[in-house]
Design a protein around this nucleic acid. Structure first.
Lengths: 208, 208
DNA sequence: GTCTATAGAAGGATAGAC
DNA sequence: GTCTATCCTTCTATAGAC
């Protein structure tokens, strides 16, 4: 039996409203900084009613974090050892940037969790995440050894892709403050810039 | 009269201990997530005694944030329009990375403030910060127009430098989880990587 | 300057009527 | 399923003794 199948329409709707509100509040205030009042208000429910759907504040946070890492890593999983090396990396950058554009709150939720020392997903970082990165780092190292891309540290390459793409979601306020109102949407130009940046890094030259 | 001159030795010492403790707690928990108890305990004082030195929780936070942006921007201010373009940018990257290595808590304090929507330094972002970045962006644009560096969007160039250098402080936990215990200090290799990355981006080639 | 005691507000969670 | 009322804890801040 699928648990969701036993839910009425109004249950599904309210659960979803709470998760959406929780995402908004937790991603901005962090777990400790968020209050049930803020979440309830954003969800359009009373505080006790909210607790009818979730047993505790933490339960909401846990549901939000679960699966987040998965979504976040899907683009890296898609990196194909059999594809064209430069294209594969650039496609990864592009997909990661799209995630920041389309799911900025999820990105900030993740950032908050890491800033607070990853109390809830620390294990997944040194487990799942490390394994996947090790695997893909080996792929990238192989491409470099074969002369298909320039010699780079694959770990720092991946870190730099994460840092730069997530920056547009996490530091959104700063980006907009600096660019001013004339350049309201930074994503098109950011995409072009990152494409140029990583292409110039990876394209092999001066092969001896 | 310098206010600090009128303080006794014990006042100076305790004030400093509180600010240091506040930095540790605020940078990890954010403003709302931090409690006076945590700060007092970290400073080795009782809670009422802490409030003898600072009138409120917010007062501690304000002192910590004041001057933070200044320190953060000093390396950018040092970018010299008269210097060698590529060297100037690479020196900026290096200095910014050193800041992350030497003051990771300050970096995380800043990250928390931005994630929360920059309630206390939003004005400085669209004022001071934007002005400085506009000025330096014009310098970089000039270098590109003169063919001294490759054509790049100067704003995204600066964003990418911020993102990648601060990443090692802000996402420290994740970086260490992925690299594992064997590579405890990521900074030497990060410095080399970033040097290569921005050198390959900026070095002009295929001049037509 | 530091402590104990405590006020007063806010926050998480539960009880029970409807 | 939703509400009012309420309990209990945590939190910021103050009072006042020492």
């Amino acid at each position: 039996m699928d648990k969701t199948a036993t839910r009425t329409r109004i249950q599904t709707k309210n659960r979803q409203a709470i998760l959406d509100a929780g995402l908004a509040v937790f991603s901005q205030q962090g777990f400790r900084g968020a209050t049930l009042d803020q979440i309830a208000k954003a969800a359009g429910l009373s505080r006790p009613n909210l607790l009818y759907y979730f047993p505790s504040k933490e339960a909401i946070h846990v549901v939000l974090l679960a699966g987040l890492l998965d979504t976040w890593l899907d683009p890296l999983r898609a990196l194909d050892a059999g594809g064209n090396p430069v294209d594969e990396v650039l496609a990864y950058v592009r997909r990661k940037l799209e995630l920041s554009r389309d799911f900025p709150r999820e990105s900030r939720l993740f950032a908050n969790e890491i800033l607070q020392g990853a109390p809830r997903i620390g294990a997944a970082l040194s487990g799942e995440l490390k394994e996947l990165v090790d695997e893909k780092a080996a792929v990238i190292r192989g491409w470099a050894a074969a002369g298909q891309i320039a010699e780079v540290d694959p770990y720092h390459l991946i870190f730099s892709i994460w840092a730069m793409t997530q920056h547009y979601a996490d530091f959104d306020v700063q980006v907009h403050a600096v660019l001013g109102p004339e350049r309201a949407d930074p994503y098109p130009s950011a995409g072009a810039y990152l494409d140029t940046l990583f292409r110039s890094l990876l394209t092999p030259r001066n092969v001896t």
